[in-house]
């Protein structure tokens, strides 16, 4: 047997799994989306139908806000943890990355415990102002949940990337007169850019499609995964939910591709 045919035989299981669990369901999803009363026009509904469009915009905004907030918080925390050695650091890193172990349902539950009707924030605000502050069941609760969910992944990526930065770069910038802000702007952030894009993309995709947290918090939050769920289970509208699923996938992929090409270009332009 030649090396080449050996490699092809080794690839067979992967091909079979890909066909069975990815290509076939995807094809079926695409076909189902076009089998509704509106036919192929169903695919346009996500953009044309006001309710769907509003949900799409909502979802993208929520995902974008989550991504930006996560990147800011995690970059600061990641850089700090990378640069400083102090007692309890390992424990702190472990605690910060602990949420990786939780499913969305648990995170939703924790948000309810924090900001729900019997939540900690509500209790404190009721005592202080007389008003019970409850936002767990809204899009703010969801935002908080996604933030909690995304920060650990991004922190780990940033810490790994920060470790690889040549400390000489920051020292060189300082020797040329750069203060801390200039060093951050001209050396650290450009050096972290690939890691920021990669981990930001994961945070964004997660926030676009996460379902467990949203489902735990409420069924009437306007995000695409919830819409797909209600169209499918409550309205039994198979074609619409299939079309929306494809739309969600395409939208997420498109925005990620845009983000990647944008940073790629900016790196090339700066270079």
């Amino acid at each position: 047997m030649s090396h080449k045919s050996f490699v092809w035989i080794c690839l067979l299981p992967l091909a079979a799994v890909t066909a069975a669990f990815f290509l076939l369901p995807m094809a079926r999803l695409l076909v189902t989306g076009a089998e509704g009363p509106r036919g192929l026009a169903e695919y346009l509904a996500i953009l044309v139908e006001p309710r769907y469009r509003a949900t799409l915009v909502n979802t993208v905004l929520l995902a974008a806000a989550t991504t930006v907030a996560t990147l800011i918080i995690a970059t600061i925390a990641g850089l700090f943890l990378q640069r400083h050695r102090f007692p309890g650091r390992a424990v702190l890193v472990a605690i910060l990355t602990f949420p990786l172990a939780f499913p969305g349902v648990v995170i939703g539950f924790m948000i309810i415990l924090l900001a729900g009707r019997q939540g900690l924030i509500g209790d404190v605000s009721a005592r202080l102002t007389g008003d019970k502050l409850v936002f767990a069941y809204s899009i703010y609760g969801l935002f908080l949940g996604y933030l909690y969910f995304s920060i650990p992944r991004v922190i780990l990526t940033i810490m790994a990337a920060a470790q690889k930065l040549d400390p000489g770069l920051a020292e060189a910038a300082r020797s040329l007169g750069a203060g801390p802000f200039a060093v951050l702007r001209d050396v650290i952030l450009p050096g972290l850019a690939p890691a920021l894009v990669a981990s930001g993309a994961i945070a964004f995709a997660t926030a676009m499609g996460a379902f467990g947290t949203a489902f735990t918090l409420a069924t009437n939050i306007d995000v695409l995964p919830m819409l797909i769920y209600t169209e499918f289970t409550l309205a039994g509208n198979l074609a619409t939910s299939a079309a929306l699923s494809v739309g969600l996938g395409v939208m997420t992929w498109l925005i990620l591709a845009l983000a990647r090409s944008f940073t790629g270009n900016s790196v090339a332009a700066a270079g």
Partner: peptide, 12 residues
């Protein structure tokens, strides 16, 4: 300062 690794800014 001139460093052994040169430490040139790769984004410039």
């Amino acid at each position: 300062m001139v460093f052994q690794s040169y430490a040139l800014f790769p984004n410039m």
